[in-house]
């Protein structure tokens, strides 16, 4: 996609302007202005129900699947308004990969999982050789540090992997369609500490190449594995800054109270 064609600031991979969102009569987001910088890992923290998952899910419009959602304001991804009239959701989803709380590999082989999106998009436009498929498969799995573990059982069902491996696989299968943004909704909350560490390490490795927006309940994780941090409360962004600054010297008293654990 041509990144300069949009009207918005090219530094931001995701930018929201005056975003309000209602679930029926309940307003979940209030005038959210957020700029997520390109190639960075931005984490969103805040107590349950503060709207961070809602905001995340608005960025690729999967929130609309709940029929009673209404939004005002704008969301620009890579400079383009994703609520525009000529926007094709399939294209939005291609550019913006999503990783869920619970790993959700498809009940097919590891190979087919990784190549699923690739076959859906690329292989329908042109003839793809088996060699190219293997190449895509290997490079995706290498990127998520999974190749050495699974290279001998690529045709085994993906559901036989450990949760940590499944989550890595779920990230790997986004890569062949070359997304620029990865949204992650508490990607480690179903994993044990070792798995969490491994997936965090992977996320950290992917920065620069992808813009990553990650929702987390775990403040230690936000601190370890993000460069910028957004603190949300009751549907509003309270503070947004470099992670170490936000944790060391928060500007707002609510932020300080939350990161010190005075409320949760």
């Amino acid at each position: 996609m041509d990144n300069t064609a949009g009207t918005r600031n090219g530094d931001f991979a995701i930018e929201t302007r005056g975003l309000n969102l209602w679930y029926g009569d309940f307003q979940a987001l209030f005038d959210v202005d957020l700029g997520v910088k390109r190639g960075m890992i931005t984490s969103m923290i805040g107590p349950s129900g503060c709207g961070k998952t809602t905001l995340l899910r608005t960025c690729n419009r999967i929130i609309e699947r709940l029929g009673y959602v209404r939004t005002t304001g704008n969301v620009y991804v890579l400079g383009h308004d994703i609520f525009g009239d000529d926007v094709e959701l399939v294209q939005v989803r291609k550019q913006i990969g999503m990783v869920f709380q619970r790993p959700n590999p498809l009940p097919i082989s590891i190979r087919d999982n990784v190549l699923f999106g690739f076959k859906l998009h690329e292989a329908r436009l042109r003839k793809v050789s088996a060699a190219e498929e293997d190449e895509v498969l290997e490079s995706s799995l290498r990127q998520v540090l999974l190749w050495d573990t699974v290279k001998d059982r690529l045709d085994k069902p993906a559901t036989g992997l450990s949760l940590e491996e499944q989550q890595k696989l779920c990230i790997a299968r986004l890569l062949p369609v070359k997304p620029q943004v990865l949204l992650m909704d508490e990607p480690c909350s179903a994993l044990d500490p070792a798995g969490t560490e491994a997936v965090e390490e992977l996320i950290w490795k992917l920065r620069g190449e992808y813009t990553i927006l990650i929702v987390t309940h775990n403040m230690a994780q936000a601190r370890r594995a993000s460069e910028e941090c957004v603190f949300m409360l009751l549907g509003k962004i309270i503070e947004h800054g470099r992670t170490e600054e936000l944790f060391l010297s928060p500007e707002h008293s609510e932020t300080a109270d939350y990161i010190e654990g005075r409320f949760g």
């Binding site: 959701l89 399939v90 869920f100 959700n104 590999p105 009940p107 699923f116 779920c170 986004l174």
Partner: peptide, 21 residues
Amino acid sequence: QAFREACWNMGATRWQTIRKV
């Protein structure tokens, strides 16, 4: 439902999701 979500989020249409998963 997680299978469907996985497909939709890779940009599969409903029909592709039905046929493949």
